[in-house]
Design a protein around this nucleic acid. Structure first.
Length: 461
RNA sequence: UCCCGAGUAGCUCAGCGGUAGAGCGGGCGGCUGUUAACCGCUAGGUCCGAGGUUCGAAUCCUCGCUCGGGAGCCA
């Protein structure tokens, strides 16, 4: 007999017939002659109620089932006379596949804090919260691929090991096979020539530069993969290992990129609203009462667009007393971004054209000579969810910016080559995948929207 | 890394200088087509760790560790 998923069973038009369900016991309620076993298989948030009575040869064992046991159930799908569920399974046989000692099994049939569950990350996928998170995360990933595939973008697998030692994105993890107890030295420094790649290598902080290479040949590409930052960041929005989506578009300027980012976010939010109603209802009830209404508001309204200069002006005229002063030339602080996205505008904002001094060397210089064609998409509660820019396609300007930034132009020879041979205006952005899952679900801590979070001092599991 | 706050039963917390508590969960028993079922009984603690103050410390002080909130770095 073939296994049926609970999601499929609960979605049936009518009851009837025998089914095989395999999964894990959420809870059991018993009386003398009958036992109600709630079984979950992760296909959907809902459990299915299995009704077992004394006619089962192993009723005693079934009556002793506890949270976490795994079972294989064959029975008849019938309409449930009780409240709370449409169908239930009248069991003909229940095989106890795996036991679960209730004295030591940490999950209980009650709500646990996300902090406690983080310590048992091998078991937390069995909770409603992490099941829902995994399904929403999966749907978002699918929607991201779908959006770009439908537009003819090419999915590019950027390398995770890189030799570009910096591009301003932050501290990097070193990759080495050298014996750390006996590091080869040369002239007082580590001799990287003896290392695996013959030079210092790191985990990537961005696939952008590689994506640019392919965009300048295949027009529209995107990467979607793990990204690493060795910053000692301890916040609810930072991970040392996270997933990033980076489209790169040839023959595209900043306005085109802003349009793309808005269309992109609306598409993936719409997809989740349409395909994850049950899970989103759960998050809306237990994590953020405005999760669904926020997404619905976003997909039906236009994003606000401001230049950095306009944003500074609005902040200065706001009459708010900020901890940090608002001065043209310094970056917007978290409190400023939140005021704009949460209080003043109340929806996503695309801020463009930042002072060049606070942005990376590769961002295209504006005609005013003071600002760069950069873009941040700010959303309520999370802040920056997308950061991007039009790239500097003029070789001489780019070279000057590399030198001004104190970088060694020799390391960027191929990046400069792209501007020597058939250069075109192009633009791209990076979307923090986990921040997107956070924003969509309303889950407050980024450690709870990734299966196994890596943060300073934590790489368990 | 910086600034706050918190670590007490398996979980969530109360107790804040004088014999360590509750709810939930667990075990045992009862009861009912049950719904976080319900009722009774019961077991369960290096009060985060190390020093110190005191006749006496879960409680006050110092340091450390872990977690949470905020900030910086950013996605």
């Amino acid at each position: 007999m073939q296994r049926s998923k609970i999601k499929e069973i609960l979605g049936r038009e009518s009851p009837g017939g025998d089914v095989l369900v395999q999964g894990w016991v959420k809870t059991r309620r018993s009386s003398k002659a009958v036992s109600f076993v709630q079984v979950s298989d992760g296909s959907t948030l809902a459990d299915i109620q299995v009704v077992a009575d004394e006619s089962l040869p192993n009723f005693q064992a079934v009556d002793a089932l506890t949270t976490g046991c795994s079972v294989s159930v064959i029975g008849t799908l019938v309409e449930s006379p009780g409240k709370g569920q449409k169908y239930e399974i009248h069991a003909k046989s229940i095989e106890v596949v795996g036991e679960s000692d209730p004295d030591t099994y940490p999950l209980q049939k009650k709500r646990h804090t996300v902090e406690f569950l983080r310590d048992i990350a091998h078991l937390r996928p069995r909770t409603n919260t992490f099941g829902a998170m995994a399904r929403v995360r999966n749907a978002l990933a699918y929607a991201i691929h779908g959006f770009f595939q439908d537009k003819g973008f090419l999915f590019l697998q950027a390398p995770m090991i890189t030799t570009s030692d910096a591009e301003g994105a932050g501290a990097m993890f070193r990759v080495t096979t050298l014996d750390l107890a006996n590091v080869p030295m040369k002239d007082g420094a580590v001799n990287a020539e003896e290392d695996f790649f013959g030079k210092p290598t790191f985990l990537t902080v961005s696939g952008q530069l590689e994506a640019e290479i392919f965009a300048l040949a295949l027009s529209d590409v995107y990467t979607f993969g793990p990204t690493f930052r060795a910053e000692n960041s301890n916040t609810s929005r930072h991970l040392a290992e996270f997933w990033m989506v980076e489209p790169e578009v040839a023959f595209c300027d900043l306005d085109g990129l802003a349009d793309l980012s808005e269309e992109f976010l609306k598409h993936i939010f719409t997809y989740v609203l349409d395909h994850c109603q049950e899970d989103m209802g759960f998050f809306n009830q237990y994590f953020d009462k405005t999760a669904i209404s926020t997404l619905e508001g976003i997909v039906t309204s236009d994003f606000e667009r401001l230049t950095y200069t306009e944003a500074v002006d609005i902040l200065q005229r706001s009459g708010e007393s900020f901890e940090f002063p608002v001065v043209w030339g310094s970056d917007l602080q978290s409190e400023h971004e939140r005021y704009l996205a949460e209080t003043k505008i109340g929806k996503p904002i695309i801020v463009t054209d930042y002072p060049k001094e606070i942005k990376a060397f590769y961002m295209r210089l504006n005609e005013d000579g003071k600002t760069a064609r950069a873009l941040d998409v700010l959303v309520p509660r999370i802040g920056e969810i997308i950061g991007g820019s039009q790239r500097e396609e003029r070789r001489d300007v780019l070279l000057e910016r590399i030198r001004q930034s104190g970088l060694d132009e020799k390391n960027y020879w191929w990046y400069l080559d792209l501007r020597s041979y058939g250069t075109v205006p192009h633009a791209g952005f990076g979307l923090g995948f986990e921040r997107t899952v956070q924003f969509v679900t309303g889950v407050a801590n980024i450690r709870d929207v990734i299966p196994f979070p890596r943060t300073p001092n934590n790489a368990e599991f």
